[in-house]
Amino acid sequence: MLTVADLTKHFDAAPVLDGFSFTLPRNGFTVLIGPSGCGKTTLFDVLTGVVPKDGGTIRWNGRELGHLGTVAAYMQQKDLLLPWLTLAENALLPASLRREKHMAAARERVKSLFARLGLAGFEDHRPATVSGGMRQRCALVRTLMFDRELTLLDEPLSALDAITRRSLQSLLLMLQRDFRRTLLMITHDVEEALLLADRVLVVSAAPMRIIQDLALPTQKPRRPDNPALIALKETVLARLEGELDHGVA
C-alpha cells in the first residue's frame, strides 16, 4: 500500500503541494484528475524524486522512502522510446539496465507481451517506422518490464487518437487485472478516469487538495453510455468547473 502524508512542495514560496495526503490500496487503479496547473505533475515529480519534497512522508508497504524512484515504474504521455534501438530492445531496457542474469527469459517475456499487445512481428522495427499507438504499446511493455508493482502513469494516452486510445484503455484494464499492478494515473479526461479507475481523486487548483474521493463499482469494463457513469461524469465536471471559476475569481 502507498501512503503519502502531508506532502509539501513550494516553488518560489508559492505552495503547489501543501500537506497533500492520500493512500493507494494494493492492486487498485486510482486516477487523479484536476484542473491544469494544479500540481499533478509536480506530485509525480516529487513522488519519483525528480524534485525534492519540502516536507511530508512517503511510505510504500510500510517502509518510509525519500521517493518512489526505486520502487515505481513510470510511463508518460511521450513514449520515450530510443530511436536508435528496435522496439524489442527498447522494451528490454529495464532488464538490460538491472543486468538481469536471465536475459533469454526476459526476451521471451518481451516476445510474449508483444504478442499479447498486438506487436508481434514488429520486434525488430525501429520506433520511427511504426504508428504512435504501437509506440505507446511498446512503452507499456517496457513499463511492465520494470517488474515493479507500483506504476505511475502520467497522461499516458492523451497524445493518441480516439480509436487507439480506446484500445489502449482496454489493454490497461487487462494489464491491471492480469499483472496485479497498483496503478496511479493522471488524466485530464473525466470519461477515461471513470471508465478505468476503481477510485477517482478529484483535486483542486494549487495548492492541490482532494475535493472529491469517488469509489467506483468494481465491475469492468464499463460502457461510456452507462447512465450512472454519465451522471457521475457531469458531477465531476461540475466540480472541476467550480475549481476553475474559483481559480479565475
Binding site: A73, Y74, P94, L97, F146
Partner: peptide
C-alpha cells in the same frame, strides 16, 4: 529520457552507452 533511465536504475556508464 534522463529521468526514465534514472527510474530504470541505470548507472552513468549505462546511460552514457545507451
Amino acid at each position: 529520457l534522463r529521468l526514465l533511465f534514472e527510474l530504470m536504475g541505470g548507472n552513468f556508464f549505462q546511460a552514457l552507452r545507451l
